[in-house]
Design a protein around this nucleic acid. Structure first.
Lengths: 124, 124
DNA sequence: TATTTGTTATACTGTTTATATAACAAATAT
DNA sequence: ATATTTGTTATATAAACAGTATAACAAATA
């Protein structure tokens, strides 16, 4: 799995990790049942602290993407609460699309980008 | 203009302000040329500190939604950098839609919500 | 002349982020 | 059996951020 941390970003490292792991699941680079590296291995690998990785894993667990097991380690396990996910998506889109609309981006242009991104997920 | 701050939210107050002002522009509740309340008035009105409002206004200025003038106050003025806005939208959508895809939300369902939100902006 | 604007400066508190050690319990490998 | 590897938990520390509190300035207005 490819992970790249931007240490100059204003986005927290553990959030960059979280987002990239979710993206990797969406593109099927990793999938249900797969193991993630141990918190120590990944931390050493990237060059960050163990607790920063642990924070990302803990959030992914809370959000329903991971199960953490002392014997098996961190395993991808999607908790399928679609209704909740829809509501969260709606709230995020409200902000994203309000910005877009103010900047003269049309509904069609938004749709086109949605399609492009979904193609990133669906090509196998 | 209707502004509601959730003091228990994990989202910073100045970001809640920023997002709601952008949303108000998108729905044409406020528009190009309109004045926002002075930083002191709005702060008193909501019951927060002047600098928190000032931070929201400063960000809105940097992002191209406001002009700040010592004589006229804060005035809505959209800086139309559409290309930049498109790229920012694409990056935000990548995270939002990756989450959605993992939770089995289809491309069509995403499109439907985009349409619903755009209707919030376009009905007059 | 007094008030109102955005703006800037300083100071303080509390929270968050990231790091650093350390230890524990359960499982695995040697 | 022993050592190692898991996630997990507990402290501690430094830096950055969020929010508040005063205060003052320059330009414009009442």
């Amino acid at each position: 799995m490819y992970l790249k941390i931007d240490f100059n970003s204003d986005e927290a490292i553990y959030m960059q990790l979280r987002n990239q792991i979710i993206y990797s699941i969406a593109t099927s680079e990793i999938q249900e049942g797969d193991n993630l590296p141990s918190v120590r291995d990944l931390a050493d690998n990237i060059g960050i602290n163990m607790h920063t990785v642990n924070k990302a894993y803990t959030i992914l667990k809370q959000e329903g993407y991971l199960k953490l097991d002392r014997r098996k380690g961190a395993v991808i396990a999607i908790d399928m609460n679609k209704m909740q996910a829809m509501e969260e998506m709606r709230e995020e889109l409200r902000v994203t699309l309000a910005k877009a609309f103010c900047k003269n981006i049309s509904c069609k242009e938004a749709h086109d980008i949605v399609d492009e991104i979904f193609k990133e997920f669906e090509r196998r």
